[in-house]
Nucleic acid binder design. Sequence first.
DNA 1: TCACTATGTTGACAGTGTTAACCGCACGAT
DNA 2: ATCGTGCGGTTAACACTGTCAACATAGTGA
Lengths: 201, 201
Amino acid sequence: MEKTKTRAKKQNYHHGDLRSALIATGLKLLETKAGGEIGLREVARETGVSATAVYRHFPDKDALLAALVDVGYEKLADAQEAAAARHEERDAGFRAIGQAFVYFALAHPALFRLMTSYMHLAGECADGEVVGDNRAGRLLKDNIAALLPADASDRDREVATIQSLALVHGLAQLVLAGQVPNDSALIDAVVDRFGDWDRGA
Amino acid sequence: MEKTKTRAKKQNYHHGDLRSALIATGLKLLETKAGGEIGLREVARETGVSATAVYRHFPDKDALLAALVDVGYEKLADAQEAAAARHEERDAGFRAIGQAFVYFALAHPALFRLMTSYMHLAGECADGEVVGDNRAGRLLKDNIAALLPADASDRDREVATIQSLALVHGLAQLVLAGQVPNDSALIDAVVDRFGDWDRGA
DNA sequence: TCACTATGTTGACAGTGTTAACCGCACGAT
DNA sequence: ATCGTGCGGTTAACACTGTCAACATAGTGA
């Protein structure tokens, strides 16, 4: 009876790939319990494993949450790239990237809140650098660079990058907090009517 | 010996005004322990009172934190009004309001994080309305209204308000998270080169 | 076959938010 | 002036959390 080959059915003593399983149930919990925090014991329990088993794969709770934050940023980058790919002109693609950011936050509120809470331990910026080296950050910087006029200074690019990221970040947070109505037309307008850097002087 | 007149010395059995005292030590703790959360038992202990005494003045921990958030918004409005008062032209005053927001967040990181975390239970917006009815929100809306061209639509005002608030909100958060260098020249540039609504079309 | 390591377990500890039961001071009615 | 009521505090306890220490087991290389 099931003499536990290399990939056993399940209930092995060893779980096989507990680390991934923990991350998976962590994400599931974040999607389900849309509001509020997540707990180490909770995710362990839901994975069907003892609480202290987590410590074989993560040094502490923060590390587990940081892992969740990382896959959150990957998912965000996926959504943004997909949104950008749906547009021909580059500025329309850029706006789509911004909208995708906000819609991602609204679609995964708990995950997004975790991502912002733990921003400081996921992709800590090199000193003096701006907007870490994750995929989402690079995508944003590349688009900004391509959109700005050719004679724009490095400072101009830096300021534009920060403005774009700050706008969508703040907007997402305001909508999530109920301070701005969750109206997609309004959200699009806020993102659209921004950043006409090639318009004026 | 001190026959407990109306305003007694101190160590009465009844604390006199425990509610204010709890809020005060809560703020002090938020200033001191710049990073991380605040605890109900912690603030009670620091006030020199038993943990459950808090429940005579607040229904639960969230209510206590919400009270702290409220005074946080008052302090923010103070700082913004003071900053605006230092400028003659209205658009310079408006930019000063935005900068004051970011500098307030950097000066009181823990309090600001609490304010954003608990935004949803302090000044919940009326349905369809934008940016609650607190002093800071009104100040922002008034300035926006005075700055926009006379023929701007209500939607224009709404969008501009949200853009301004989202920008400073997101910027503050990015700097606090270390994703944007804490450089006041850079911060000023990000806030300054924004919202030239009377420039183009 | 046997030690060894990787990975899981139980048990415990300190700390949290919250409830229940209790107590004392101050004040208002008698 | 006395007394009862209630507001504002107390201690004890519960369920929960993150984390550590000690132990147990499965699979692997000598």
